[in-house]
């Protein structure tokens, strides 16, 4: 926990202890993760469909974490970008007959465009107001999709064709599609890691720690915040687009505020401001929903309880605790 700095109004939630493992440990962890994910469907233990869903949510959670973990902005409306990506990708694939790569591109760009508009409005307020503003704007987007004819309201866009990626890979083959989704996820993951570790990312972290000081050093923090917001929205749109093709439908569930809450929960469980936290959080939450699917509304209750427990006792999340433990061990040795 960064201890002294969080007194500034509207400041970031304190990220996990200095946020990261050593560079070598991080590369090792990445290779293990990529290897595991590549080998898992071959074992036949887990449905590829479930894994694809989990990977889409992992992209979504990583995109969200870029904003809360590294800029300290809690968006409570990220479902609007996930949903926009999904709707546009599904519509362009089904009605306009786009091939999958173009459908995904369309969804991602649409989410980025909405992200620009929302970002321009929302970054005018900080802290708690930022969260309420994004939530309200996403509710507006929800109502627009509820009424717009192309989304088919409550029914959603059904039986979206998956097509052939670049005319080569037949995505209706589940195995093929799985490795495509895995590739997309790994690219998105590395991109976010690159962003976070770049000079641009350093400025974002400076804004998180102390925005007035960043301004006094001559940075136009508004621009950096907007840029981060648009990047995050675009990546969330990517998650939504791929998810729509995987599930072959796009529906109102993905735009609803409960989805915005879910992604917060994923990052919180995994560890805010850690690179691997959102991935683990997404897998944990999706697996939990899968196992508890028969219990109806109790899933929401359990998610609520996890929320409360995490905030009260477990603010660093799974990965944050691991990092803290490793650092504590490291300190013991010395």
């Amino acid at each position: 926990m960064t201890s002294a700095t969080h007194a500034a109004p509207g400041s970031a939630p304190p990220a996990a202890a200095s946020g990261r493992l050593g560079a070598r440990a991080e590369i090792l962890a990445f290779l293990v993760m990529a290897g595991l994910l590549a080998a898992l469907p071959l074992t036949g233990l887990i449905y590829p469909y479930f894994l694809m869903q989990a990977l889409c949510f992992a992209i979504f959670a990583c995109a969200f974490n870029l904003l809360i973990g590294y800029v300290g902005l809690l968006s409570f409306g990220h479902a609007m970008f996930l949903g926009t990506g999904g709707y546009i990708a599904a519509h362009s694939a089904k009605v306009w007959g786009f091939p999958p790569e173009l459908a995904i591109l369309a969804g991602l760009l649409a989410a980025g465009a909405i992200g620009t508009l929302v970002g321009l409005l929302a970054i005018r307020r900080q802290g708690i107001y930022f969260a309420m503003t994004t939530l309200a704007l996403s509710q507006m987007v929800y109502f627009v999709y509820l009424q717009a004819p192309f989304t088919h309201g409550e029914d959603g866009i059904q039986s979206v064709p998956q097509g052939r990626l670049f005319g080569l890979f037949d995505l209706s083959q589940q195995q093929t599609f799985y490795y495509v989704v895995l590739a997309v996820f790994l690219i998105a993951f590395l991109l976010i890691r690159r962003i976070v570790n770049s000079p641009f990312g350093d400025i974002l972290k400076a804004i998180r720690e102390n925005e007035p000081r960043a301004i006094s050093l001559g940075y136009r923090t508004e621009r950096y915040k907007l840029m981060a917001f648009v990047l995050s929205a675009t990546l969330a749109g990517l998650a939504g687009s791929v998810k729509a093709l995987v599930a072959q439908n796009a529906s109102l569930t993905d735009v609803h505020w409960t989805m915005s809450g879910e992604v917060v929960l994923m990052c919180l469980v995994g560890g805010l401001g850690t690179i691997f936290g959102p991935v683990i959080g997404a897998v944990v939450i999706i697996a939990m929903q899968q196992y508890l699917a028969g219990f109806g509304q109790w899933v929401l209750v359990i998610q609520g309880v996890i929320f409360i427990a995490c905030v009260l006792a477990f603010r660093r999340g799974i990965v944050g605790e691991i990092i803290a433990f490793a650092q504590w061990r490291g300190a013991e040795k010395r």
């Binding site: 809450g261 509304q297 109790w298 009260l312 603010r315």
Partner: peptide, 22 residues
């Protein structure tokens, strides 16, 4: 703690209450 934790905790609380009543 940061304001945002209060928002998150009460969000979880809302999920629990509404879920139980539902």
């Amino acid at each position: 703690l940061d304001h945002l934790y209060g928002l998150l905790l009460t969000f979880g609380l809302a999920l629990v209450i509404q879920g139980v009543f539902q």
